[in-house]
């Protein structure tokens, strides 16, 4: 494994911890933290002001990424995607990525929920961008 060369290990640990808590509601496993730090080093992703502010302010990364989707949030998005790659290959996260069988009503409810949740996150993200002057 490579070691990070542009962003300190402590900053990356804080970053992955915040991202993991935001998406999965708990601290990340130790192996995921180590791999996240190494992956960032390999990718030579330098400090990203947007990500730093999201982490420092304990802001919702998903909402901010959605509101700024595109070039402005490209690095934040890559960092979230990196975390997702690292966790999805662990069986503990299998239920998060692979839903168990659902009947038609639950499918419709799930689709509606996904749409409404996206709307909520988008509005929240816009508010966070304005409130914290993120761009």
């Amino acid at each position: 494994m490579q070691v990070p060369n542009e962003q300190s290990g402590e900053a990356l640990v804080a970053e992955v911890t915040h991202l993991h808590r935001s998406f999965f509601g708990s601290d990340p496993p130790v192996e995921v933290v180590k791999r996240y730090v190494s992956a960032n080093g390999l990718m030579r992703v330098g400090p990203d002001p947007l990500t730093d502010r999201v982490v420092a302010g304990h802001l919702d990364p998903e909402a901010v990424e959605l509101a700024l989707r595109g070039a402005a949030s490209a690095i934040l998005r890559k960092k979230i995607q990196t975390l997702f790659y690292l966790v999805e290959v662990r069986s503990a996260y299998y239920p998060y990525f692979f839903t168990s069988a659902k009947g038609p009503l639950k499918v419709v409810a799930g689709m509606l929920h996904a749409g409404l949740y996206t709307l909520r996150q988008y509005l929240k993200g816009k508010w966070l961008v304005l409130r914290y002057h993120l761009v």
Binding site: F23, E62, A63, E65, L66, R77, I80, Q81, F84, Y85, E88, V89, Y96, F97, F98, T99, K102, V107, G110, M111, H113, A114, G115, Y117, T118, Q121, Y122
Partner: peptide, 25 residues
């Protein structure tokens, strides 16, 4: 492919993309 290859290509919020992909895979 891995889910993370696809989830980030979809237009909704990330968690919604995961949910929709899980339902529609």
């Amino acid at each position: 492919p891995l889910r993370s290859d696809v989830v980030f290509e979809l237009p909704l919020a990330i968690r919604s993309n995961v949910e929709v992909l899980g339902l529609l895979a």
